[in-house]
Simulated scan of single mutants.
Amino acid sequence: MLPWSADLAGRLDEHVLDSAVLRDNPLGDPYERPLWVYTPPGYDDEPERRYPTVYVIQGFTGHVAMWRNRMPFRQPFPETADAVFARGEAPPAIVVYVDAWTSYGGSQFLDSPGTGRYHSYLCEEVVPWVDARYRTVNAPEHRAIMGKSSGGYGAMVTPMLRPDLFGALATHAGDALFEYAYLGGFPQIVRHLREYGGDVMRWWDDFRSRVSFTRSGDDKLLEILGYTACYSADRDGTPVLPFDPVTGVLRPEVWQRWLDWDPVRMVPRHADAVRSLRAVWIDGGTRDEWFLDVGAEAYRRALLDAGVAADALHFELFDAAHGGIDYRYPLSLAWLSDRIAAK
């Protein structure tokens, strides 16, 4: 397998969006954002044909340029996605790669006073922009969203909040069942914060003053700061931890704010929205370090209990940890493309 880039059978257009909703975001992050739009082979040959669309979102710390990262003996997803359509494994679709990076590492694809309006950016700016410039089928039953980890979380949550836009999803090891995904890491974070007097923002100042990830606990502390800014920031943007940073005792009212954003718990509140889903792909590794295979089971059960038809679901657990599961993405892409195909 070649260690450098390969030619695509389709076309990958690279754009920059000037976002109104991300201007003056609380972290001062760029409001001009890269956006990649892939059109499948034959797109330019049939000017009257319209196509379903799959939106691809990334995990925590992800940004759109990372889709070019090439692991040894593996192809990056834009190439394996192109191969799905070049080989005729699924009906052709437009694939949109969205950037929702923040200085804290991610946005969870939510609107938050701690990070910015990234849910609105995706739904109110990116989707209409793509529909206006590409020959999409502008209907939720022909529009899907997919992602892994925090991207998988965004893929679960976004159709619940905007069923008028998204009618299908794929979640690979998406954050769910928060008491298992997050709660077990809180004691480690308390230990790491001891040298910062229990102040996560003191750690943040230190982190930004040196080479990143050179001290023990940097990864865990970045995660807790990023998630807190998304799930439980005060109105002024201040991140409020869901536990006392010195004693580790849970703050029930703050932790509840996190639980309110748990996809498993959101499903009953958005039962009408999930029942409208045309297709849901759920998978995860049985050795996932954040127990997201357990979260996947719980999310699947919540969907079934809410009345989602069993034949609309694809559920699969496989032997893997959290990382290195990018080979799963073209599988779900082909499955989604088949189910949202314009007919």
Rank of each mutant, 00 (worst) to 15 (best):
P3Q: 08
D13N: 06
L17P: 08
N25P: 12
N25D: 12
P26N: 14
W36P: 04
Y38M: 11
P40W: 02
P41S: 00
P41A: 00
E46Y: 10
P47R: 08
R50C: 15
Y51D: 07
T53P: 05
Y55E: 07
V64Y: 04
R70N: 13
P72L: 10
F73E: 14
Q75C: 03
P76V: 10
A83F: 04
A93C: 11
D99E: 05
A100C: 15
A100F: 01
T102E: 05
T102D: 07
Y104P: 06
G106Q: 05
S112Q: 05
P113W: 07
Y118W: 14
Y118V: 06
S120V: 01
V126F: 03
V126G: 01
P128Q: 04
W129G: 05
T136Q: 09
E141H: 11
A144N: 11
K148D: 13
K148H: 15
G152R: 03
G154N: 00
M160F: 10
F166K: 03
A173D: 05
G174L: 03
A176I: 08
L177D: 10
Y180C: 10
V190E: 11
Y196P: 02
Y196E: 09
F207I: 08
S212Y: 14
R215C: 14
G217V: 07
L222G: 08
G226L: 07
T228R: 02
T228G: 09
G237D: 09
T238N: 01
F243K: 08
V246H: 01
L250G: 11
L250P: 09
R251K: 14
V254L: 02
W255H: 03
Q256C: 00
P263F: 01
V267E: 05
P268C: 06
V274I: 09
V274Q: 04
S276L: 04
L277Y: 01
I282F: 11
D283I: 10
Y299K: 03
A306C: 09
A306L: 07
G307P: 03
A310V: 09
L313S: 01
F315M: 01
F318L: 12
F318E: 11
A321T: 12
I325K: 02
I325Q: 12
R328S: 00
R328G: 01
L333F: 09
A334N: 10
A334Q: 06
S337T: 08
S337K: 02
